[in-house]
Design a protein around this nucleic acid. Structure first.
Lengths: 210, 210
DNA sequence: GCATCAATCTAAACGATGTCAAGATAATCT
DNA sequence: AGATTATCTTGACATCGTTTAGATTGATGC
């Protein structure tokens, strides 16, 4: 999470803000964390940043474009989290599970941000570029490639990455369901639950069998 | 898809509608299919049903409650689709894949409805009851139980069901991404792509290994 | 059959939202 | 310094979810 500037008030701020784009994105994230996604209106963001409702339109074409910027920051934060998880695990087997757990935990800890990242009400049918090029997606693919010793066809590698990503995303969206509470309890906590589900996915059974 | 009554016009419809609750839900689904989720406002639904903007409030507490009813219909439709897929497959192995493919295809063919079904802006952290009790979730669990010959601990059965559901949901949300187009092409169509991903998930590796 | 009552619908309004057009203000360039 | 451009504000518009008050109808009891 980047450092956030304090909300500007009328007396501290000059007519020209200086870096309103960034301030707006930060204000948006602040609102997301404190009041949830329902409260995230353009006007509320402008209010939080201390400017008029029309000011954002000089920096973003749309409300969508602001959200895109917020999502972008989210993907970068996810990158950081996954990199850390990857570095922490020693063997390649554990590394993969660790990645999955980190992914789901990121979604659990930043539910509002995660939702913005996957909100497809604006760009209907494409992944964010951030995800494909040099982003989290590649980290997963590289980890898989590493784990299988590089001896997997490009198509299989891509398929395995997609499979892993889908499983992670599905779990990320459901981890909060309270119907799972007894199961988590029985398994000794949420992380144990996560690991158990990932094991059941046996995501690399096919790759291992050749 | 249930039969839908035609949109009522001022001259055909008496002051009292007769069955406005149902008409509203049908109007909502009609809007979802033709204009997408962005156009689904309460006022638009009322307009489509031929009544005043305030009329829905005599049948639903909220906009959320209307959407809940729409989602309920969605879950029932999903039940039907899964039941059909289950009946069509002969052996229990194929039956499981068939279930998964049917699930994802349902989401692909009813993207707007699927989104409403999973929209957690109203009831944050619980699955719809429809899903757990005697619904699609049970169909998946039963199919897994059947496939493993019933010799699996309740916890493992539940975990496997969750794992399968997460994978299906994740794939359902991503199937439309155009980045997957070349891969689909290479594998000979979308269904082949789906099956390939499901195979890579190897969802029952653990259960099979005991 | 008719009066009463509850259910259902409309009309009108309120505050909030996304967005745009005009005008004010400040930074930058020549 | 003067002109130009970028940035911000004011004020407005259509739309939305929701509420209140009043109109219309169906049902109920006599």
């Amino acid at each position: 999470m980047p450092a956030m500037t304090q909300p500007a008030t009328a007396d501290t701020r000059p007519y020209h803000h200086g870096d309103l784009s960034r301030a707006l994105v930060e204000a948006a994230r602040r609102i997301l964390e404190t009041e949830g996604p329902a409260a995230l209106s353009l006007r509320a963001v402008a209010r939080e940043a201390g400017v008029s409702p029309a000011a954002p339109y000089h920096h973003f074409k749309d409300k969508s474009e602001l959200l895109e910027a917020v999502a972008h920051e989210g993907w970068m934060a996810l990158d950081v989290a996954l990199t850390a998880a990857r570095a922490k695990a020693s063997d390649s087997n554990e590394r993969m599970t660790s990645l999955g757990v980190a992914y789901v935990c990121f979604a659990r800890d930043n539910p509002a941000l995660y939702r913005v990242m996957y909100d497809r009400s604006r760009d209907k049918d494409s992944l964010p570029d951030q995800m494909k090029e040099e982003g989290a997606y590649c980290q997963v693919r590289n980890t898989i490639d590493e784990r299988t010793g590089g001896g997997v066809s490009p198509i299989d590698l891509e398929l395995a990455t997609i499979a892993a990503w889908c499983a992670g995303h599905g779990l990320a969206e459901m981890i909060g369901f309270k119907q799972f509470a007894p199961l988590k309890e029985a398994l000794g906590g949420e992380e144990a639950f996560l690991r158990a589900v990932f094991e059941h996915l046996g995501m690399f059974a096919k790759l291992d069998q050749g």
